[in-house]
Simulated assay, not measured.
Amino acid sequence: MDEKEIQSFLIISSVVLFLLIMTMISLFVLFQKRKNALLLKNEFAKKHFEQEISKAQIEIREETFRNISWELHDNIGQLLTLAKIQLQSDSSINEVKGTLDKCIKELRVLSKLINPEALKNMSLEQAISDEIDRFNRLNFIKSQLTIKGEQIKIDSKIEIVFFRILQEFFSNTIKHAKATHLDILLDYQTDVLTIMAKDNGLGFDLNKQKHSGIGLTNIKNRAKLVNANATFISEPNKGTELTITYHLNNENSYHSNS
């Protein structure tokens, strides 16, 4: 190989080596950009998740305090007024005592709700059970909670989201659906938790735009936030059914994102 060929070879080799180095640098820079973008995305998702959990907690407290305010004004207020009337009308001591005993019982239930630690440490099953008991005690609607399978503890933040979703469903059932019965099911299977809430109220047409707006969208988005799926079944005059499906092995993916 003469000197000219050697020079040509060296030039070509240098060019190839330069291009190879530039390609590696470009790939490294691209990798870093994608890595940083993924980290930012995960950080944003984590902050969004925490914000939604805080929002759900605030809404639960607000709903609880609204209920407390209503019960103090209407329920307990009425009981005290009745006790006063009984005293003024010379009713028997047992009648007055019975009214005051009922009033004290109602106050004890409310004191439990007022305690922030009780709200914080309450399980999903207990929170739903207390809501059902309140509906039945105040004659809002005939309600029933059924639990199937062996109960499995799930992350408290996920329970907060599920309870808030159910609160929204309950509120709509009582205020707008004109239902007389409300049934809730917690079905624990090997790797799936299914939550069903069903009323016998007015129902609605799922195909109509006005019914697929912010209410249903909000519930579905909140379920999606914790890797769950929320679906509705409803027809006019045939009630509404909400089903939340949560794969228990999603706990791992949830913790990796939070």
Rank of each mutant, 00 (worst) to 15 (best):
K55I: 08
D101Y: 05
K46C: 05
F18T: 13
Y254I: 11
N136H: 02
R164L: 14
T64Y: 00
I154T: 00
E159H: 06
I184F: 05
Q32P: 01
S13E: 13
T243P: 02
E235T: 07
P116Y: 01
G98S: 15
I152T: 10
I104L: 13
D74L: 12
I21S: 11
L27W: 05
A118M: 15
K175M: 07
K105T: 10
V226R: 03
M1A: 14
F232I: 15
L39A: 13
L27P: 01
R137E: 14
I158S: 02
L242D: 04
L225T: 07
A179S: 10
V15I: 11
L119M: 08
M196A: 11
K33R: 07
M22K: 14
L82A: 11
A197V: 09
S256L: 11
Q209S: 13
L72R: 08
F9R: 15
I128D: 00
K41S: 05
S54R: 15
N42K: 13
H181V: 12
I184M: 04
S8P: 05
L225H: 04
V96F: 06
T99I: 00
Y254E: 06
I53D: 00
N229D: 14
E150C: 06
M122D: 14
Q126V: 09
K157P: 03
D155W: 02
D101N: 12
I132E: 03
Q7S: 12
D2G: 15
Q32M: 12
A37M: 01
L113I: 06
S111G: 04
I165L: 07
K41T: 02
T99P: 00
R34K: 10
L182H: 02
I128Y: 00
F65T: 15
L193G: 00
A83P: 01
G203S: 00
L72W: 10
L225Q: 07
